[in-house]
């Protein structure tokens, strides 16, 4: 359609907002990470010292180590369990809709809400440990959330529980997208159900796996609310993630430049995961569309 001034005029505010409040702010934060900012932003250039300091900080090392553990288990767990759920739900079961809704409802809830529920559910004083002992299983012990070693796994459990339904839905869409005639052909060719899944269907789930991985990875890097609600970073700093680190250093420890440096690294991590994906998706769209 011939483009008058009107469409451009109406699109302009959004473009300006995004350019300023996304890309301008990103540039500003990255710049801050090279300055001497403490309580308030200041523009005095310092160089890469903040990054050097960041990597020396035990708090950052813990955050980063936690992120690896958390991201690995969260992504792996959600994908594995998500695939299993998808396959089970795909077996022409009764009440499929009800099962899907049950597995997916946590996605509709705030991490603060579910974090609260899990916090007390996993609390040894009143939660599972206490309850199962009350029910007669005297030796049952589950006190991970109070242990510096194990608390991060509690975050993983809650996060997988919250997200797995979404992964299931993604994979289910992938499974349903496989051409039914191809499956029939495999059946005619003598493959059993198990072989059909492994040899015919799963290999076609590539795009769904990639989508799920990218989305879960970027969620892992961004994770903040759940940790705050579930453990508030504790015990001690044992469940800190980069997001918690960033908030702490920027807003409570008055080390804004270090906070900005950590935010920059978070962005870099997400960009590494997301950009190749977006570029390839976008190419596909450009080719087909």
């Amino acid at each position: 359609m011939r483009t008058g001034i009107l469409p451009k005029l109406l699109l302009a505010p959004s473009v300006l907002l995004v350019v300023a409040c996304v890309y301008g702010y990103i540039a500003f934060t990255i710049y801050l990470s090279f300055t001497t900012s403490t309580l308030m932003p200041n523009l005095e250039w310092l160089g890469t010292d903040n990054y050097t300091r960041l990597f020396d900080l035990e708090n950052w090392k813990v955050s980063l180590r936690n992120l690896w553990v958390f991201a690995g288990l969260f992504i792996g767990g959600s994908m594995a369990l998500g695939l299993i759920l998808a396959v089970m739900v795909d077996q022409r079961i009764r009440a499929e809709g009800a099962f899907r809704s049950i597995f997916l409802y946590p996605m509709a809830l705030s991490f603060i809400v579910t974090g609260t529920a899990w916090k007390w559910l996993m609390d040894p004083g009143i939660g599972l440990e206490h309850s199962l002992r009350e029910m007669g299983w005297e030796s049952f012990t589950f006190g991970w959330v109070k242990s510096g070693e194990m608390a991060i796994y509690c975050v993983v459990i809650a996060a997988v529980w919250q997200t797995v339904g979404f992964v299931m839905a993604l994979f289910l869409a992938g499974l349903r997208g496989v051409d039914a005639e191809v499956v029939s052909a495999a059946r005619v060719d003598g493959a059993n159900t198990w072989q059909i899944y492994w040899r015919v269907i799963f290999p076609q789930l590539g795009p769904a796996v990639v989508s799920a991985f990218v989305i879960l990875a970027h969620m892992a890097i961004k994770s903040y609310d759940l940790v705050i609600a579930l453990t508030n970073g504790g015990p001690g700093r044992s469940t800190w993630l980069p997001s918690v680190f960033m908030y702490q250093y920027t807003f409570t420890r008055n080390e804004m430049a270090v906070g900005a440096a950590s935010a920059t690294l978070m962005l870099a991590g997400i960009a590494i995961v997301v950009l190749p994906y977006l570029v390839s998706e976008y190419r596909n769209v450009a080719r087909h569309g």
Binding site: L11, S14, V15, V18, V19, C21, V22, Y23, G24, Y25, I26, F28, T29, L32, P41, H218, I221, K222, Y224, S243, M246, Y247, T250, M256, G259, A260, S262, A263, T264, M266, L267, I270, V274, L275, L278, Y282
Partner: peptide, 21 residues
């Protein structure tokens, strides 16, 4: 380009905009 910019903005960690915002 506008669309690509909007698309990527969906993924950014909001920590990166907290200070200037």
């Amino acid at each position: 380009i506008v669309f690509a910019m909007l698309l990527f903005s969906v993924f950014i960690p909001f920590q990166i905009v907290l200070i200037p915002m």
